[in-house]
């Protein structure tokens, strides 16, 4: 990071800001935010928590979570499937790996290890709390999963990967949790449909609350706090899905070199 680089960077930033402000003052390029929102956004904001109109509401105080899991739920299920297929692709590239146990005393110095023993359980607690209150405050399933997977990544960096093995994080168990949680999301999405087949009423797939022509609904009050039905269960299952999947990828990328070399030698004898 020499002095020449810093001077070029600062002058580049000043040039960009000066040219754009000169274009604004001369009324050539004027980009301003509008005074009114679009009608589609107004209808989403109005009907997301609306106890006076029972056919279009979803009882969630967080409008973005209601849009992601209730009004456009099919997009989110397919996005989870894209994440799943990326993990399967990585598993295919690194086949035939064997884990080696045996704890060794490695890692960074004592000054770094001591505070991180306090911080790492707190990170997981923050993740769980973001997942459970996803329909009332900012948060949700994917945010909680991303926050909670920083903890195993820090353990790999500060301590060693054998510490992670000693805490019982195996690759096969993580992949199993990931698949079971994804199957749970699919089961909840068709649960009201199966309920209607058994009791002979009318219900749709991916339905959350009362809609036209059907009267089935998921639980929407928890003593005195609004509970948005299937959004609550989706958030918890998405947290488990993302946490298990991303930790699995981090373990595969940072294993010891001996394990993967045995796979490479096997492949070369085939060709």
């Amino acid at each position: 990071m020499r002095k020449k680089d810093i001077i070029i960077a600062i002058s580049l930033a000043i040039m960009v800001m000066a040219i754009s402000s000169a274009l604004y003052v001369g009324r050539f390029i004027v980009i301003t935010p509008p005074y009114k929102t679009r009608d589609l956004a107004k209808s989403f904001l109005k009907y997301s928590y609306n106890p006076w109109n029972e056919e279009l509401t979803s009882y969630a105080l967080n409008v973005v979570s209601a849009i992601i899991w209730d009004y456009r739920g099919l997009d989110t299920i397919l996005e989870t499937a894209v994440l799943y297929s990326a993990i399967i692709g990585i598993t295919t590239l690194f086949r035939g790996v064997i884990e080696i146990r045996g704890l060794r005393h490695r890692g960074l110095s004592f000054l770094v290890k001591m505070p991180s023993r306090i911080i790492i359980p707190l990170i997981i607690a923050v993740g769980i709390s973001l997942a459970m209150y996803g329909h009332l405050t900012p948060g949700g399933g994917f945010q909680a999963g991303a926050v909670a997977t920083v903890a195993p990544a820090l353990i790999i960096t500060i301590f060693s990967i054998e510490t992670l093995y000693a805490l019982k994080f195996r690759t096969r168990k993580l992949f199993l949790i990931r698949t079971i949680a994804f199957a749970g999301i699919l089961v909840i999405s068709i649960s009201l449909f199966l309920y209607s087949l058994v009791f002979l009423t009318n219900a749709y797939i991916l339905q959350n609350m009362i809609r036209e022509n059907s009267n089935a609904l998921m639980p929407h009050w928890f003593v005195d706090v609004p509970l948005a039905g299937s959004i609550f269960f989706y958030n918890i299952l998405e947290f488990l899905t993302v946490f298990a999947g991303l930790t699995y990828v981090f373990i595969i990328y940072s294993m010891r070199e001996r394990e993967v070399e045995s796979m490479w030698r096997e492949v070369e004898t085939y060709e």
């Binding site: 967080n62 973005v64 979570s65 973001l130 900012p138 948060g139 949700g140 994917f142 945010q143 991303a146 926050v147 997977t149 920083v150 990544a153 991303l246």
Partner: peptide, 14 residues
């Protein structure tokens, strides 16, 4: 706020 909570761990941690 939702995008902030999703962007902080990905860009500065993972």
């Amino acid at each position: 706020p939702d995008v902030t909570l999703a962007y902080i761990p990905i860009s500065s941690g993972l």
